[in-house]
Design a protein around this nucleic acid. Structure first.
Lengths: 325, 325
DNA sequence: TTGAAAGCGATACCAT
DNA sequence: ATGGTATCGCTTTCAA
């Protein structure tokens, strides 16, 4: 391993000088600088981040904590975060918590132990105070709390949009699926939908679900038609269960969207690959990731005028599981 | 921040002693140990990984380099890797390269700068020698090379399986899609399929594609039916394009699997959410991730008898885009 | 403009 | 069994 010492020796200067050219601070003569640069190039030197991090007590790492990257909504978030932070020279420490407090704590601890400059978390246990002890900038992503800045999409509006659209398109008996109760954004959209529905003429039923997982999606779909066979429109808790419902419906011989309309939530990429293509409420996941990262970096740089939180707009994407016109 | 010094002072011992109890090596009296443990608990101390890493010249971090986490095959791999390494106390530094050499180099460099103990890479530029300078254990994932250990699934067998199955189920005019030429596993499955086809009675055509991306999938589907309208079975280059083809076919009024049979590749989770559900060749992605991580850790621990590479079996999953019996 | 040296928070060797 | 201290590779005063 080539160190700053080797470079110093090669260039015939002190390590202090090398450090100065590395960090472009302090005075350093033009010739000296050139010599150092040459030595660096010759030895193919690149500074040890760990040593830097130790001295400065801050690394160039950012901790990203997700519930489960395997769930198709999160890769987009992650990618947005990564693209933004990497432009600023930061790298990502990644953790999946499975919404399990212990795992979450473990990751938070190791993030701190590695001197991360900040964290972004899309998990649900913020309110347990597990982030409070750490004195680290934290931005919540797709979550909301009173204590920390957050980036999220307008869930109530999303729910409202879905409900109003279905009513408008002639749905008479709507089933709205209520997502897991510990996921706040899921509750927001539910609330938005129900409010809009209450204001309308349509009648509706509520079906509670306790997970967003792939494996369970099919189960929810079956349950829905067993319990509420009259349903002519469903507001699904997310796209995956929407797709499951869609195909369960086809299986049962229903025509989409004539007999049954469906609106999903998230607009994961595979929506346009479903058949029929899925109408959904789009959350700008990639953009959310980017904004969260940007907000975090502003906090890190102690910029003035930092937004407390950022709410991004949602958008109804009409595809083929809702009626036209 | 509470350091080992603080603990030492609190416990009335030297830092050396604290270090000994921390690492459970060297002699330390039972009472002393108790005192230290109490101090640690009282101060809620946890050792600074950065300082450790500096001294030991190795962190507890592992670099994971992926083409694009947004592509549904990779989250599974990533999760397998993470679950395995985290059980051994390691954490993941994540990078997406977009198959771009410069990004790849950047990540590799920062991984090294952060003293990672090893890397896992699922990208395609190994042969450019970009990993050779680094003196780091490397395991390739879903890629193959002569120089480095690798974990991958049996692509040729996968191609063969797909081809034989279709022939057996009465396909007469098969279109086999050839994936991007720089992705070796894609070439393997292509080769396997073509070999099997040549041995059979069926006639076939080849359609080359240059990407696996979501956005392009629909385009490939349209191109396929425009160019080869006679096709009665397709061996898709992966599940995403298979699903795109499936829905394009439905759009065109074809009956699945009567008029057209389709076999995908990978068995990403959404296969069972497509309609009809997609028959495919399953690669055990999660398991591949775990095995790669395990192999890497064996290498790190300099265990004897390390497998050079691991080839995992693929498996044909018959769902509803192939005929029964 | 440059260099010497202290210090970041651990580990491990050498004494005692 | 315990403590003192050099060391890891870098940054940053302080002096010259």
């Amino acid at each position: 391993m080539v160190t700053i010492k080797d470079v110093a020796k090669e260039a015939g200067v002190s390590v202090a000088t090398v450090s100065r050219v590395l960090n472009e601070n302090g005075y350093v003569g033009v010739d000296t600088k050139k010599k150092v640069l040459q030595a660096i190039a010759k030895l193919n030197y690149s500074p040890n981040e760990v040593a830097r991090s130790l001295y400065k007590r801050r690394s160039r790492l950012i901790g990203l904590l997700l519930p489960d990257i395997t769930n198709p909504f999160f890769p987009q978030l992650a990618r947005g975060v990564e693209d933004e932070v990497s432009e600023a020279g930061f790298r990502l420490l990644l953790g999946n918590s499975d919404e399990n407090v212990q795992k979450e704590l473990d990751y938070i601890q190791t993030f701190a132990q590695n001197n991360v400059v900040g964290m972004i978390s899309a998990t649900s246990h913020v309110d347990y105070g597990i982030y409070d002890a750490l004195n680290l900038p934290l931005v919540l992503l797709d979550r909301i709390s009173d204590e920390y800045p957050a980036v999220y999409a307008d869930g109530e509006e999303g729910g409202r949009l879905a409900a109003e659209t279905l009513v408008e398109k002639g749905a008479k008996q709507i089933t709205v699926m209520k997502g897991p109760s510990h996921i706040k954004p899921a509750q927001d959209r539910y609330r938005g939908a129900v409010e809009a529905l209450n204001r309308s003429e349509a009648s509706y039923t509520v079906m509670s679900t306790t997970s967003f997982s792939f494996e369970d999606a099919k189960g929810w779909a079956e349950e829905l038609f067993a319990k509420y066979p009259e349903t002519d429109a469903v507001i699904a808790s997310n796209d995956m269960v929407a797709i499951a419902i869609l195909h369960e419906a086809l299986q049962l011989g229903k025509r989409i969207p004539e007999d049954l309309q469906i609106i999903g939530y998230d607009d994961i990429p595979q929506c346009s690959l479903s058949y029929p293509t899925l109408s959904t409420v789009r959350q700008p996941a990639y953009e959310m990731g980017r904004q969260a990262a940007r907000l975090l970096m502003k906090t890190i740089n102690k910029e003035q005028e930092i937004e407390k939180s950022i709410q991004l707009p949602v958008q109804l994407i009409e595809r083929n599981t809702t009626r036209k016109g």
